[in-house]
Design a protein around this nucleic acid. Structure first.
Lengths: 337, 337
DNA sequence: TCACGCTCTTGACGCTCGTCATGTGAATGA
DNA sequence: TCATTCACATGACGAGCGTCAAGAGCGTGA
C-alpha cells in the first residue's frame, strides 16, 4: 500500500474537468497478446529487486540476510544456514525453502555445492547491486542547502512507451522528483544511479542530464520541492519505520535476539533511503522525521550489529544449528541439513 | 525570411508513428469567448520592438538612430534633425515622416516641442530597453566552455496559450535554444533577460529557472547544442552581415559617409547579438563565423563611430542642415523644419 | 492614400508525458 | 496446493507543447 501510494502519489491536481470514460463497463473478451515479459524486464537494473517484495515477508527477509551477510561469508552459504537464519527470524522452514527457490529464480542467488554440501552462492553481477545498496542503506546522504541538483530531461517516442514507463518508475525508486512531464530532478550525488538506470534501459540517446544549482533558497524553493516530491508519502514511510522499530531494545540482548532485531530493522529500513533522496533540511517541513529515523536506525545498528554478526558466524560454524537458540523456534530443525 | 527560418527552424523529426485523430474534422459552431487581445500584448517586454521591422527599412534605420544618438543628444531632437539624419541615410523625407509617425505610434518616441521647435523625445520606459540593447550590441558576450547554463522549464495551461506562444517567441529572440518541449536553455548570463521576459508575461508562477553546468564537454555536447539551436540559421545571419558590410570602407571617410556606414552597420548588426546566444567556441562548428563578424563590426565601429558622432552633432548644431552633406541627397530639404 | 507583403493570430493537429481503469500473471501466506 | 493480493502491461484519456495552414492585421514603400 505504501509502495502504491508512492508510485501513484505524484498525481497532479486531477480535479476540475471530470474525465469521461467511454469504455464499455462490461468485461471485454479475452484480450490478446499481452504479457510478453519482453526483454525490457531483463534489462531492468537490479535496483528493481529491492522493491518487489514487501518488507517483513520471507523473501524480503532473505534478501536482507543475503545483502548483509552473504558477501562477508565468502559469497556462499549452505542451504541449512539460510534455513537456520530465517528460522531465527521466525520464518518456518517450508516458507524459507520457497523463498530460497524464488530468490534463486529471480537471479539473485544460484545453487552451488561446496565439498558436497548443497548451498547457494551470489549470482554474478549481484555484487554491484548489493554494494550500491550498502551505500544507500548505511551512509544515507543528505544534500546541502546549496548543493547541486541533477536534472533529467527526456523525450521518448510513444513506440518505446514501456521503456518510458520503466524509466519513470525507476527514477521514482531511486528518489527522483518530478518537475514537469519529462523533467525530473534529484540531488546530484544520485547522478551515477540515474545514469545506470538510463543506460540499463537503453535510453541514453533520449535523455539529457544537467547538473544544476542555485535554487533560489527560501520558502519558494521549499514550495517547489513540495511539488516535485511526494514528501507526505516519504514522511509516512519514515513514521512507519519509527513506529515499527520503537519496541526494539537498544541495549544488549542475546545473540539471536540481536540478530532478529538487526535484520528486521534493516529489512524495514532498506527501502527508505531509496525513496528518500536526502533533501536538505532547509527545503523540508519543520517536523521532517528523517534525522530521527536515521538516528534510530544507527542506534539499533550500534546495539545489535555486532552480536548479530556473531550469531551468524556461530550458525555458520556449527553447520546450521545456531548456538544459543531455542530449538523450539527453529521449527523442524531436523530437516535442516 | 531569415526570421521565419529561425522561428520555425526547430522543427523536429515529425515522422514515425501515425497518430490517430478521433476529433471531428468539421468546423464547430462559432466557438465563443476567445479573442480578447488581452493585456498580454501591453505587457510585452520591449525587446519585441527590436525585432518587428526589417533591417534597412526606414523604421529600422530610425530605430537605430534613436538607439545610438538620441540619449546622448539629451533625449530629444527636433523633427528636422531626424529628417536630416534619415536623409543622410538615403531615406526620402516623406518616408522619414511616415517612419517617425509610426515609431511614435508604437510608443518608442513621443512628440514634444522645445522652445517652440517641434521635436520628438524618448518615451518614458524606453530608456531601459535601449540600455539593454546597448549591452548586447556593443559587448557581445561569449560563454566559456565550462560556463554555466540557464535552464528554463515551464508548463503553461492551454487557457494561456497566447502567453505561452509569446514566451516561446521571445525566448527565441533573446537567444534561447530548445531542449525539449517546455525545456529551454541559454547561457546563464542571459538569465536576467529571461526573468524579465517571464515576469513581463506574468508567467513567473509557471516557469522554473535552473542554473546548470557541466555539459559533458566534447563532441557529444556539441551535438546537443546543434539540436537545441538552429546554428545554421544563426550562421546564415552572420554571413549575410559579413557579405552586406564587406564593401564598407574601413579607413577614414567623410563625416556623412561615416555616418551612413556606421548606422547602416549597426542596423544590420543589431539583431544578431540577440539571436546569437554567444555559445562557447568549443561547442560550435569549426567554421563558425561569429568571431569574424564581431571583428568586422568592431573595425567598422572603430573607423566610423567618431566621425559619425561628429556628423550628428554638427547636424544638431546647424538646426537640421548637416554640414558637408550634398544637398541633392537630402531630398526636399526645404521641407525640413 | 493604396496595394503589396510580411507578421501575427487563430484553430486544428500530432506528439509526448502522465494518469486511470482493467485484465493477467506472479508472489505471498495459510 | 489454493485463495488472496500485488505488480505489471495495456489501452484510453486529458493536458501541455510545438507546428502547420489559413485568414486578419499591420508595416512597408510607392
Amino acid at each position: 500500500m505504501i509502495g502504491r501510494t508512492l508510485v501513484t502519489g505524484h498525481a497532479r491536481e486531477a480535479g476540475g474537468v471530470a474525465g469521461q470514460t467511454t469504455r464499455s463497463p462490461g468485461g471485454v473478451g479475452p484480450v490478446d497478446v499481452a504479457h510478453a515479459p519482453t526483454d525490457i524486464v531483463q534489462a531492468l537494473p537490479r535496483v528493481a529487486d529491492d522493491m518487489v517484495s514487501r518488507p517483513g515477508s520471507a523473501v524480503s527477509l532473505l534478501r536482507t540476510v543475503v545483502g548483509v551477510y552473504l558477501r562477508e561469508a565468502g559469497g556462499w552459504m549452505p542451504t541449512g544456514a539460510f534455513l537456520a537464519l530465517l528460522g531465527a527470524l521466525g520464518v518456518p522452514v517450508p516458507q524459507a525453502r520457497t523463498a530460497l527457490s524464488r530468490v534463486k529464480q529471480r537471479g539473485l542467488l544460484q545453487a552451488e555445492a561446496h565439498d558436497g554440501v548443497a548451498g547457494l552462492a551470489l549470482a554474478p553481477g549481484a555484487g554491484a547491486m548489493l554494494a550500491c545498496g550498502d551505500r544507500r542503506i548505511h551512509e544515507p546522504r543528505s544534500m546541502a542547502a546549496d548543493g547541486e541538483w541533477c536534472l533529467i530531461v527526456f523525450s521518448i517516442p510513444e513506440a518505446m512507451r514501456d521503456a518510458r514507463h520503466q524509466l519513470r518508475k525507476q527514477l521514482t525508486w531511486i528518489g527522483c522528483g518530478t518537475v514537469e512531464a519529462g523533467v525530473w530532478i534529484c540531488p546530484d550525488f544520485l547522478r551515477g544511479e540515474v545514469e545506470d538506470v538510463v543506460a540499463g534501459l537503453g535510453l541514453s540517446g533520449h535523455v539529457v542530464l544537467f547538473t544544476a544549482r542555485g535554487l533560489p533558497a527560501g520558502p519558494v524553493a521549499a514550495g517547489q520541492v513540495g511539488q516535485w516530491w511526494d514528501l507526505e508519502g516519504i514522511a509516512h514511510l519514515h513514521r512507519a519505520f519509527l513506529e515499527g522499530q520503537s519496541g526494539v531494545p537498544e541495549g544488549s540482548a542475546g545473540a539471536a535476539e540481536s540478530f532478529a532485531a538487526y535484520v528486521g530493522c534493516i529489512d524495514a529500513w532498506r527501502v527508505i533511503p531509496y525513496l528518500d533522496p536526502g533533501l536538505p533540511a532547509e527545503l523540508l517541513p519543520d517536523d521532517w522525521p528523517g534525522p530521527e529515523c536515521i538516528a534510530l536506525f544507527r542506534r539499533i545498528r550500534e546495539a545489535h550489529a555486532g552480536p548479530a554478526r556473531d550469531f551468524v558466524l556461530g550458525t555458520l560454524a556449527s553447520g546450521g544449528v545456531p548456538a544459543g537458540l531455542d530449538p523450539a523456534r527453529l521449527g523442524h530443525s531436523e530437516e535442516v541439513r
